[in-house]
């Protein structure tokens, strides 16, 4: 309760400072929209459905791309943690590609897929896969060997060993890897939406982009707020349950680990 109060106070002060700056009149409303005008835009965009639609489009792209990135990156990470062949080939590739900012994929994506959903998806998958793979690899390598040894003596081998020992044992690392992957996916998608104009769907990134084109700064700020909110919400909905599980079972805070 006290923590909620402190948080509420913090944000209230933040908004008040913003409002004070807007009122001072030192900056033109074109550059610094007031909280009121942003709220006005948000309400209007909610009412006419354009905001919800854009959010829907963005989330769909994000979830599909992220799911694909995890589906590719996770098994690759497990493989490269055990097989030197994979480590020396795909592992090195992943290490290199992970350092590549995802915006760099956009020219290639446009040439290969044109102005399409495919290009968008490609950028997100490229942005997610490698970081998930590397986090999984690191996680699987840092499992205390005594777990695997104990499991082996009890007769665990092959598929059973993967699913009942290696995977759960590396869960703390997997969760932080998936979180990192999520952040990467989110970033890649925003870059893609800002740079790739397509007609099949109007996402939050495009809303942001056109806000700038139209000099509608309240739209830009409002969309940024929505993006931040979705990020926070995803953290609570997607990852908090896992982190609570880790906390309960391992007795550690996954964030502190």
């Amino acid at each position: 309760m006290r923590r909620a109060l402190i948080a509420a106070l913090f944000f209230a002060v933040l908004v008040a400072a913003w409002q004070a700056m807007a009122w001072s009149g030192r900056w033109s409303p074109v550059l610094l929209p007031s909280p009121g005008s942003v709220a006005e835009y948000l309400l209007a965009a909610l009412a006419d459905g354009s905001l919800l639609e854009a959010t829907g489009v963005t989330l769909r792209r994000l979830l599909v791309g992220y799911a694909m990135g995890v589906a590719i990156g996770l098994p690759l990470g497990l493989l490269s943690s055990t097989w030197e062949v994979v480590e020396d080939t795909v592992g090195v590739l992943a290490l290199g590609l992970q350092t590549l900012p995802s915006v760099c994929w956009i020219p290639l994506a446009l040439l290969w897929f044109g102005q399409s959903e495919g290009a968008m998806l490609f950028v997100v998958v490229m942005g997610t896969t490698w970081s998930v793979m590397i986090a999984t690899d690191t996680g699987a390598r840092s499992i205390p060997t005594v777990y695997a040894r104990a499991a082996r003596t009890m007769g665990s081998a092959g598929f059973h060993r993967w699913t009942r020992v290696i995977l759960p044992a590396s869960l703390p690392f997997l969760v932080s890897g998936m979180k990192q992957g999520w952040a990467f996916a989110w970033r890649s998608l925003m870059a893609a939406e800002i740079y790739v104009t397509i007609l099949s769907g109007f996402g939050l990134g495009q809303l942001l982009h056109y806000g700038r084109e139209l000099n509608a700064m309240e739209q830009v700020v409002a969309v940024m707020l929505v993006i931040v909110l979705i990020g926070l919400l995803a953290d609570k909905v997607l990852f908090a349950p896992w982190e609570r599980f880790l906390h309960r079972r391992w007795g550690t805070d996954a964030r502190g680990a």
Binding site: R149, A150, A151, G155, P168, A169, R249, W250
Partner: peptide
């Protein structure tokens, strides 16, 4: 092999 089980020096219980 399952017929020869080990109790390790450090506790090897699975935390999950």
């Amino acid at each position: 092999e399952r017929h020869r089980l080990v109790m390790f020096q450090e506790s090897a219980l699975f935390p999950w």
